[in-house]
């Protein structure tokens, strides 16, 4: 009756390829069952979750880097420390979420090494460079807003350790939402130059955010939905983001760069120009953007220079509590 905790979660029966058990597992998921790290689970379920959660954790780290560039340049001391605290929370989220992936059997060190080597996947929005304080407003409010939409949906995911961590992450994101809106409002009510810097950044971030949710995949064709990781389709999330954030931008007289963007009240949904999906593939799977290459270069350099300290910092005897 006991299962011992190990660095990568409780030891479990790893042979996840029994078809009859798999069918029963899927049936239980459909009925809303939750899965714990020590439970039997099909290999497909384990692998899909690892891939999804690892990408989420990677994105928190890579998402910290563009904003981090502005801690040193923040325009006031108040913004300097609140931005530092916000980026610290992103690193904190990575810390929590890597542990969830670890509880499925993938060591954090492997994920981290892959990320730094440029082999880890992360969200498209974190491949872009930043140019002005307007980017801090856009990342803090609009990009984070997109993340909040998808993260709230994860409160209903089937892997219980992930749900528990997402509860805390989502609670902290409410703070980030306010932090982002506060910066955006200051620019929107500031000097002409400040407004210009905001509008220019919104124009640049529009397509990456449309890309962020992914292309429209039918519910029945999305394996993440079939296996109980996601509960909403990409298009449902994109529509929710537009319904939440576009009215806020328009209300402040901030233009959106898509001329076709309009709310169809009869259909109860947004019309918009289909983003260029080839460009998304190029961003996440093609040659790294200059911004990503440079961030990873510095990350690799720092990592190599600190080989000597990793074991001392983390220790070899890891403990766990998913």
């Amino acid at each position: 009756m006991s299962s011992t905790m190990s660095p990568t979660g409780p030891q479990h029966d790893t042979a996840g390829t029994d078809p009859a058990r798999e069918a029963a597992f899927l049936e239980a998921l459909d009925e809303g069952a939750k899965v714990e790290s020590g439970d039997w689970m099909p290999d497909t379920y384990r692998q899909l979750n690892i891939r999804f959660i690892e990408m989420h954790a990677n994105s928190e780290i890579m998402g910290a880097l563009p904003e981090r560039e502005w801690i040193a340049r923040a325009p006031t001391l108040k913004r300097k420390r609140s931005l530092a605290a916000k980026v610290q929370d992103e690193v904190g989220h990575a810390h929590l979420i890597y542990r969830v992936a670890e509880s499925l059997g993938r060591p954090r060190k492997d994920m981290y090494d892959d990320l730094i080597a440029g082999k880890g996947k992360f969200h498209n929005v974190f491949h872009y460079p930043t140019y002005s304080w307007g980017d801090v407003a856009c990342i803090g409010f609009l990009v984070d807003g997109a993340a909040i939409v998808t993260q709230r949906a994860l409160l209903e995911t089937s892997y219980a350790p992930y749900v528990r961590v997402m509860k805390r992450v989502v609670a902290e994101e409410s703070l980030h939402y306010r932090h982002g809106e506060d910066i955006l409002l200051a620019l929107a009510s500031g000097t002409d130059e400040q407004f210009e810097m905001l509008q220019e950044a919104v124009n640049r971030w529009w397509e990456p955010i449309m890309h962020f949710f992914g292309n429209d995949i039918a519910r029945e064709d999305d394996p993440s939905i079939r296996w109980g990781i996601k509960t909403r389709t990409n298009e449902e999330s994109r529509q929710e983001w537009m319904s939440t954030y576009v009215p806020k931008l328009w209300d402040l007289g901030i233009e959106t760069p898509d001329p076709a963007l309009r709310y169809d009240a009869d259909a109860g949904q947004w019309d918009y120009t289909e983003p260029d999906w080839d460009r998304l593939r190029e961003i996440v799977k093609g040659t790294p953007t200059e911004a990503t290459a440079s961030r990873l270069y510095w990350r690799q350099l720092l990592h190599r220079h600190h080989d000597w300290i990793h074991d001392i910092v983390v220790g070899e005897d890891l403990s766990t509590a998913a």
Partner: peptide, 24 residues
Amino acid sequence: EKRERARAAADARGADEVRSREVP
């Protein structure tokens, strides 16, 4: 108050059309 201030700034810029679009 901060939103009111930003709306007033938008009005001063003549952003009426953007501000009056239909939303959910």
